[in-house]
Simulated assay, not measured.
Amino acid sequence: MRSTLEEVIVETRSTPLENRTRLPRIALSKRNRAVVRALNPMLVTYLEASRDLSETNSILFGAALVVCRIIGAKVSTAGRATGQSSAIPAWRRRIEERITKARALIGRLICFRSGNNRPRIMRTIRMAFA
């Protein structure tokens, strides 16, 4: 367990925060608690030797990663930067879609008001007034 911890700590120190893997939530079972309790005393020596906050962060993240590996939890291989689907938040995309639909409806209402009685325009007008 100690050798795995040392390897993972060295590995996490070299990777930037943005590219670290996402850690899953683990269940609070007796087995998982036992693994954490066994790992905690090993962390003391590393944490006492840490110089700054980023090194402490690397040590704790490495310990969490070791726990996940030991209990067999699935750890995603993609980092946070590659795991995101889009930079635009979902709420903003929904609002922009509503604006686009409203503009299309306004355009068809203007066509109807100017005397356009085509079937597609009439169908839209019926749906809008319904």
Rank of each mutant, 00 (worst) to 15 (best):
residue 66 V to W: 02
residue 20 R to V: 02
residue 57 N to Y: 12
residue 116 N to H: 01
residue 95 I to R: 13
residue 93 R to G: 00
residue 112 F to K: 02
residue 102 A to M: 11
residue 66 V to H: 03
residue 57 N to E: 15
residue 21 T to P: 13
residue 38 A to L: 09
residue 111 C to V: 04
residue 33 R to M: 15
residue 101 K to L: 10
residue 1 M to I: 03
residue 21 T to F: 11
residue 123 R to K: 15
residue 115 G to K: 10
residue 44 V to H: 11
residue 62 G to L: 01
residue 85 S to W: 10
residue 108 R to H: 11
residue 48 E to C: 09
residue 31 R to F: 15
residue 109 L to V: 05
residue 63 A to K: 06
residue 65 L to P: 01
residue 111 C to Q: 14
residue 91 W to H: 06
residue 80 R to A: 14
residue 40 N to S: 14
residue 59 I to G: 03
residue 83 G to F: 02
residue 70 I to S: 04
residue 80 R to Q: 14
residue 54 S to G: 05
residue 26 I to T: 07
residue 88 I to W: 06
residue 1 M to L: 12
residue 117 N to F: 08
residue 14 S to I: 05
residue 106 I to G: 00
residue 65 L to R: 07
residue 32 N to I: 08
residue 80 R to K: 15
residue 109 L to H: 01
residue 120 R to G: 07
residue 70 I to E: 09
residue 25 R to Y: 07
residue 77 T to D: 15
residue 1 M to F: 10
residue 94 R to C: 01
residue 65 L to S: 01
residue 98 R to Y: 11
residue 10 V to W: 04
residue 68 C to I: 04
residue 93 R to E: 12
residue 104 A to H: 01
residue 47 L to P: 07
residue 51 R to S: 13
residue 15 T to P: 02
residue 75 V to W: 11
residue 38 A to Y: 05
residue 42 M to A: 06
residue 77 T to N: 14
residue 61 F to C: 00
residue 30 K to E: 14
residue 113 R to L: 15
residue 39 L to W: 00
residue 31 R to A: 15
residue 85 S to Y: 02
residue 129 F to V: 13
residue 29 S to D: 13
residue 97 E to P: 05
residue 100 T to N: 14
residue 34 A to W: 10
residue 35 V to L: 08
residue 4 T to W: 11
residue 23 L to A: 07
residue 12 T to N: 04
residue 83 G to E: 10
residue 105 L to A: 01
residue 74 K to R: 15
residue 79 G to D: 05
residue 47 L to G: 07
residue 59 I to F: 07
residue 40 N to M: 11
residue 76 S to D: 14
residue 107 G to P: 03
residue 10 V to H: 08
residue 13 R to Q: 10
residue 15 T to A: 10
residue 47 L to V: 05
residue 12 T to V: 10
residue 108 R to E: 01
residue 103 R to E: 06
residue 91 W to G: 00
residue 53 L to R: 15
residue 15 T to H: 02
residue 74 K to N: 14
residue 67 V to R: 04
residue 22 R to P: 07
residue 114 S to K: 14
residue 7 E to N: 05
residue 6 E to T: 03
residue 37 R to W: 13
residue 103 R to L: 05
residue 65 L to E: 06
residue 99 I to Y: 12
residue 90 A to H: 09
residue 75 V to N: 09
residue 31 R to I: 11
residue 95 I to Y: 12
residue 76 S to P: 10
residue 39 L to M: 11
residue 64 A to Y: 00
residue 51 R to Q: 12
residue 95 I to H: 08
residue 38 A to S: 11
residue 25 R to E: 08
residue 9 I to P: 00
residue 98 R to I: 04
residue 74 K to P: 13
residue 42 M to I: 00
residue 81 A to Y: 06
residue 71 I to Y: 05
residue 6 E to A: 10
residue 39 L to F: 06
residue 42 M to F: 03
residue 61 F to K: 02
residue 113 R to C: 09
residue 73 A to T: 02
residue 49 A to S: 10
residue 9 I to N: 01
residue 70 I to F: 03
residue 111 C to T: 05
residue 91 W to A: 05
residue 105 L to Q: 02
residue 54 S to T: 13
residue 73 A to L: 04
residue 28 L to Y: 07
residue 87 A to T: 06
residue 18 E to V: 08
residue 108 R to I: 00
residue 129 F to A: 09
residue 55 E to V: 01
residue 81 A to F: 10
